[in-house]
């Protein structure tokens, strides 16, 4: 049992080092900084969450995220923090930090497959599930805070819009990144769906993983029916409308968010590899 746990811990550590975060000092270029973003790793009280805290901090995940967000022209300070929340998520409050909960990261790791699986004609490995879902939650929380800070008009519920904004970004870094992150996110959402919560559970808002899972599949299929054609049967009657859903999200993003993006810095961000080429090996 100890050996299995050690192997699992090693695999998780390897996954983080390989897929998600590159050593910041070596990799984060000095010209990719966002002075409006502060980052903080808050020490957890629960001992079981401490390894996650230490891994994230050592790998400088938030510094990497801040560099990725360099093109975002924020009008106010935003703090992005990792923290023990007592739950997998804390609802975003106006003016509060964008928070990634250690419990959420633990859930990502718990939901990731131990072995590889064939998904869409490719090997889907544990690393993708971990990296994809982490990229998703980080971009999702930042998107919610950005809508608030920049007073971005959003129709169709902020939570879904934040999901879609994160998905659009994932789709803009090439097919390889799109597969790893979108399918990684979808894997996590499918595994942690609240479909058994009953109707009262839905009163909490957009917390139904199953809906978000299908939204992601629809966004991916709508953006690239060739690459993501394998998800079409899951979408049933909705499939034919996905290209319109994707176009609507893309147009809304271009209209409302893009004016707040520095195009020169964006070109630099897009010119850099954020997931290492040895992903999945």
């Amino acid at each position: 049992m100890t050996r299995i746990a050690s192997v699992a811990a090693l695999a998780i550590a390897a996954a983080w080092s390989i897929v998600m975060v590159t050593p910041a000092r070596a990799q984060v270029p000095s010209d990719l900084r966002n002075p409006q973003i502060d980052v903080a790793y808050i020490e957890p009280k629960t001992a079981a969450l401490r390894p996650i805290y230490e891994r994230l901090k050592k790998r400088e995940v938030l510094e990497e995220l801040r560099a990725f967000l360099a093109p975002l022209k924020l009008t106010k300070k935003l703090e992005i923090r990792t923290e023990e929340c007592g739950d997998t998520r804390v609802a975003y409050k106006a003016g509060a930090p964008a928070t990634i909960c250690y419990e959420y990261v633990a859930a990502i790791e718990n939901a990731a497959p131990e072995d590889w699986l064939p998904i869409g004609g490719q090997k889907f490995v544990r690393q993708y599930a971990v990296a994809g879902a982490f990229v998703h939650v980080a971009l999702y929380e930042v998107a919610l805070a950005t809508f608030d800070i920049l007073e971005i008009p959003v129709w169709g519920r902020d939570e879904y819009a934040a999901d879609n904004a994160a998905g659009l970004i994932m789709l803009n870094f090439g097919r390889d990144v799109a597969y790893k992150t979108l399918i990684g996110t979808s894997w996590f959402l499918a595994q942690t769906s609240l479909s058994g919560a009953g109707p009262f559970g839905y009163a909490r808002g957009a917390d139904v993983g199953a809906q978000r899972f299908y939204n992601y599949l629809c966004l991916a299929y709508g953006a690239d029916p060739q690459q993501f054609g394998f998800v079409k049967p899951l979408l049933q009657r909705r499939a034919d409308n996905c290209r319109f859903e994707y176009a609507s999200v893309r147009d809304a993003f271009l209209t409302t968010v893009m004016p707040h993006i520095d195009q020169d810095l964006l070109a630099k961000v897009k010119g850099r590899e954020w997931l290492r080429p040895d992903d999945g090996k």
Binding site: P153, V154, W155, G156, R157, D158, E159, Y160, A161, N164, A165, N215, E245, S248, V249, D251, A252, F253, T255, T256, V257
Partner: peptide
């Protein structure tokens, strides 16, 4: 109105119609 005014629907169109 979402169609004719090309509203920025970044979330879900059906929820947007309910919100309006």
């Amino acid at each position: 109105v979402s169609d004719v005014f090309n509203l920025p629907v970044m979330g879900r169109e059906e929820d947007s119609a309910d919100q309006i």
